[in-house]
Nucleic acid binder design. Structure first.
Lengths: 136, 136
DNA sequence: TGCCAACTGACACCTCGCTATCATTAGCTG
DNA sequence: CAGCTAATGATAGCGAGGTGTCAGTTGGCA
């Protein structure tokens, strides 16, 4: 049985644009908000459905985050890590991880990969915090 | 108003023992299974309640894991990272992270800390996989 | 331009991790 | 040992993230 023919809907285009323009991992809710700037009546179910199909196509890849909704970013970037702002919750890309020395696992363990997450405050949140302190 | 007097119940002892003997981060479900070997009729609600109070006491600390229930381990260890087995789901401690070079964040970002996770197959799962291959 | 199935939006529903409730049990103190 | 009450076990409930359903819409081909 053949695959059904895929249609290139305005909604899917809006979602792809949202991810391209953001250039950082987006949660489904963030993707909805961003894509609604391209296509105002977009619904959350459509975002989830299209994220799923873009994952299947290999156009997106998941960036999971403990205790939070999984974020997604455009696939195919070089190996890199992420920064999570604990104030605004946004995630950002960091440069590649050259020179990172990994701890040695116990005997017999097979390491398939690693994830490194930095967390703290992003530039915007640092800014607005110090602005708030000045104005008080 | 004074704090209510804390009682040292067999259930709480069983839960503490489970974490001490495991010597690795346990999810509430894992802690339940392990503690039931000390106190068979233990219920899951009691595990959650005691994890909460052990966290408040500073005896446990959380080890969060994307897409999974948070695990907990005995507090006070030196800074270290974890290994997550994708086959059996168990988490293990790794040695400290001396020599780890962190990627530089963008200008204006304030880094508060980092988490490093290795993933792959633990020794037991590597073993049983190759044993399975042999017996086939 | 007409057709029709892929797609959409709205919303009910599901799962999972966790918390609240409540009758019963059992530490602790005197 | 009696009595007070913190703690327990069973289970209902909650919230968040995500999926299923279905009537209505629309992309794309003939």
């Amino acid at each position: 049985m053949p695959q059904p023919v895929q249609r290139n809907t305005r909604q899917k285009q809006a979602i792809r644009n949202a991810f391209i323009q953001a250039n950082r991992p987006l949660s489904p809710e963030e993707a909805l908000a961003a894509a609604q700037r391209h296509y105002a009546t977009l619904g959350i179910a459509t975002v989830y459905r299209n994220i799923k199909s873009l994952l299947a196509e290999g156009w997106l890849e998941p960036v999971s985050l403990a205790g939070q909704a999984t974020r997604y970013e455009v696939a195919g970037k070089a190996h890199h890590h992420h920064f999570h702002c604990r104030k605004c919750g946004r995630m950002f890309d960091l440069g590649n991880c050259t020179g990172t020395v990994l701890p040695r696992p116990p005997r017999g363990f097979r390491v398939a990969g690693h994830e490194l997450l930095l967390y703290g405050d992003c530039a915007r949140c640092v800014q607005s915090a110090s602005a708030g302190r000045r104005s008080r």
